[in-house]
Design a protein around this nucleic acid. Sequence first.
DNA 1: AATGAATGAGCTTTCATTCAT
DNA 2: AATGAATGAAAGCTCATTCAT
Lengths: 201, 201, 201, 201
Amino acid sequence: MPDQDAPVHPHHLSSSTPERLTQRSDARRNIQKLLDAAAALFVTSGVEVPVREIALKAGVGMGTMYRHFPTRADLIVAVYRHQVEACVEAGPALLAESSTPFVALQSWIYLFVDFLTTKHGLAAALQSDRPSFDALHNYFLERLVPVCEQLLDAARQADEMHSDIQALELMWGVGSLCINTTKELQIDARRLVSLLLTGLR
Amino acid sequence: MPDQDAPVHPHHLSSSTPERLTQRSDARRNIQKLLDAAAALFVTSGVEVPVREIALKAGVGMGTMYRHFPTRADLIVAVYRHQVEACVEAGPALLAESSTPFVALQSWIYLFVDFLTTKHGLAAALQSDRPSFDALHNYFLERLVPVCEQLLDAARQADEMHSDIQALELMWGVGSLCINTTKELQIDARRLVSLLLTGLR
Amino acid sequence: MPDQDAPVHPHHLSSSTPERLTQRSDARRNIQKLLDAAAALFVTSGVEVPVREIALKAGVGMGTMYRHFPTRADLIVAVYRHQVEACVEAGPALLAESSTPFVALQSWIYLFVDFLTTKHGLAAALQSDRPSFDALHNYFLERLVPVCEQLLDAARQADEMHSDIQALELMWGVGSLCINTTKELQIDARRLVSLLLTGLR
Amino acid sequence: MPDQDAPVHPHHLSSSTPERLTQRSDARRNIQKLLDAAAALFVTSGVEVPVREIALKAGVGMGTMYRHFPTRADLIVAVYRHQVEACVEAGPALLAESSTPFVALQSWIYLFVDFLTTKHGLAAALQSDRPSFDALHNYFLERLVPVCEQLLDAARQADEMHSDIQALELMWGVGSLCINTTKELQIDARRLVSLLLTGLR
DNA sequence: AATGAATGAGCTTTCATTCAT
DNA sequence: AATGAATGAAAGCTCATTCAT
C-alpha cells in the first residue's frame, strides 16, 4: 500500500495507486509532520480544530498545509485512512473466523464503534453536510458500506436476521449513536449500538 | 396556556403562568415575528443561523432580538416550546389509551422522532456541548426524560421489556438517530429507531 | 432657593427662578426619583453609568428621564447643584472668618477637593470634551470661577501671593489633580494640591 | 537600537534586543503604516480611537493589526516607545549637565510635560483604569518612575528640597495636570506644573 | 516548494437615543 | 406626561483562505 499517508485529492479517493511517482523528500516530510500534528490535535481538540493550529504544531506554513490538503476533509481522511482500511480488511477476516456471520457482523460493528468513539468529533464530522466535508463522507461510505453489505448478506443467508435494513442505513445509525458520547453526559455508545444489533435479529 | 410563544426567561422555564399580564401590542408582534423568522431559518439554515439574519428576516433591530431573547437558547426553546409541551402531555395520554405500555412507549418515541426529524439541525443542537446551548439541552431533558421514564417503568412492570436502559440514554440514542436525516442522503430515522425499540424487548 | 433639584435646561443655568410655576406632582416626584437614583449610581459606578440603569433604579421610563434631563450633563449638574452652591456660598464666608485671605483660599480649595474626590468620575467628566458634557463644564466654571477669583484677588491684595495665576487655571489644575485618585493606585490628591498651593505663595 | 518601532510583545517590554532578526519587508511596512496611522489618529481622536479606524487608515486588514499588536496597549506603547526612552535617557544626562540637581529635575519634568501635552489623550489614557490600558500604564511607570526617583533623591541630598513626595506621586500629579490641556480652553500645563515644582522646594 | 503575513467578512453584544403606544 | 420597546451603529475579536515573498 504505497500511498498511505499521501495527500488525498478528490479524484484519487478510491484509487490505491500512488499519485506521483516522485516527490521531493521535504514535501513528504512535511506531509508526515502535518499528519502527526493533525492526529494529535484531533484527539485533544476534535476534528474542527483551527487549521492554523495544525500548521503551527506541524511547524509548517499555512500554504504548505493547503498545498497538500486543500480541504479539511482531505486531512481527516488522510489521518484516519489507516484505520479505515484496517476496518475494511477486518470484515472478511471476521467472517472467516467467527462462529456465525451475525457474530462477525456484531464484532465488526463494535470495531467501528471503538474507532469512532475514540475520535473526538469524527462521528459528527462524518455526518456534516458542509461541502468541505463531502470528501470525508464519501470516502468512509465508499470503503465501509460494501464491507458491511457483505456481512449483512452473509447473516441473511444464514437466516440469522430478517431485517431488510440497508448497509448504508445501518452504518449511518451506528455513526449517529457514536456522536457526542465523549462529553460530560456519559452515554455508552456500545450499549445503544447493542440494542440496535439486537433489534436486527 | 396563555403564554404560548412568550419569550422564555430562565426562571419561567417550567412555569405556565404568563410573565406579564399586559404587553405592548407591538412588542408582542415583534416577538411573534422573531419566532416566525427563527422557525423558518432554523429549518433552512439550522439553529446555528446568525442572530443578525434572524433579526433581519423578522424585520426588527438587533436590540429587539436581545431584549426578548437574551441568548440563542432562549429563542430556540421558545420556538419549540409548543411541540415539546405537546410531547410531554402526550406521554400519560398514550399510556392511558394504548393497548399495552410498550405500545405507548413506541408511539411516544415515534412522536418525538417526528418532531425532531422535521426540524433541521435541532437534534444536533440538542447534543451540542457549546455553552450557549445548555439551556436548550436542559429544557428538553428536564421536560422529556421524566415522561420517558414513566413509560419505561410501566413497560417494565408489565413485563414487556427487560432491558435496564435509562430514559436519558434512550432519549439520547433516539435523538442521535434523528440527526442529519433530513439531508440528501435519505436515511429513515423511524426505521433505525424501530430497530432500537425492537432491541428493547 | 426654590428651584433646587429642578431639571436644568441650558438657558436656566445661571437663573435662580423656577422654570415653571406649576408642575404636575407626579413629574416632580419622578424628577426626585431620578436625582436620587443618579446620585446613588454616580457613587458606585461613576457619572458614566449607563442611562438605562439610572432610569431602571429610579423606576421610571427612559422617556421620562430624557424629558427631564435631555443630556447626561443636565442630570449631573442637577445632582451636584446643592454641593456646588454650598461651595459658592462658602467662599465669602471663609474670607470673612479666616485669619488671612490666603488661608481662606486654601480652605476653600480643600473644600472643592473633598467634593471632587468623593465623586467617582466627576473630576474627569468635568474635563471631558464630549459635547454632552459641555453644560456640566459650563455650570461648574460659571459658578465657581468667580468665587475663586475673589479669593485670589483678596490674597493678592493682602500681599500673600504674587503668582499671577488665573482663577480658571487654578480650578482646572486642582480638578485635574483630583482625577482618578479613587483608584487602586492610592494617590493623595490633597497632598498634590497642597504642593500647588505652596507654589502659589 | 535596532528594534525601534517593532511590535511590542509583553515579554519584550524591557528588552532592547530585536525579537526577530529577519522580517518580511511587507510586514515591516505594515507595522510602520500601523504605527503612523495610530500616531496620527491618537492625536486627532485620542488613544481610544476604534481599532478598525486605525486599520482602515493604515490600509491594512483587521487581522494584520491584531497580528502585530494584539492589544491596544501594545500599539500605544509602540507608538510612544521612542519618546519614553528618550525621556528615560535624558534623566541622568540632565543630572550631569545641570547646575544643580533641582534644576535637572525641573528640566526633566518639563521634558515630560512637553511630551504629554503634544499627545492628545495620552495623559488621560495613562490614568485610565480599564484593563486594556494596564500595559501602557505599567510601561510608563516602570520606565519613568525610577528616573524621577533618582532625580528626587539627588535634589534631596543637595538639600534643595525637603518635600517627602514620592516619585510616583509626582509623576502622577504632573500627568494629571497635562490632561486635556490641548482643548479649546487654553490651559497652560507648564504654568501649573511650575507651581507644583515651586511647591516642592 | 515553502512560508506565514494579509485579508476581511463574520460573529456577538452594548447602549444612547427615538418614538409608538 | 409617562412608558419602555425599538433602533442600529458601533465595538472587539476570530479564522478560513489567499497570495506576495
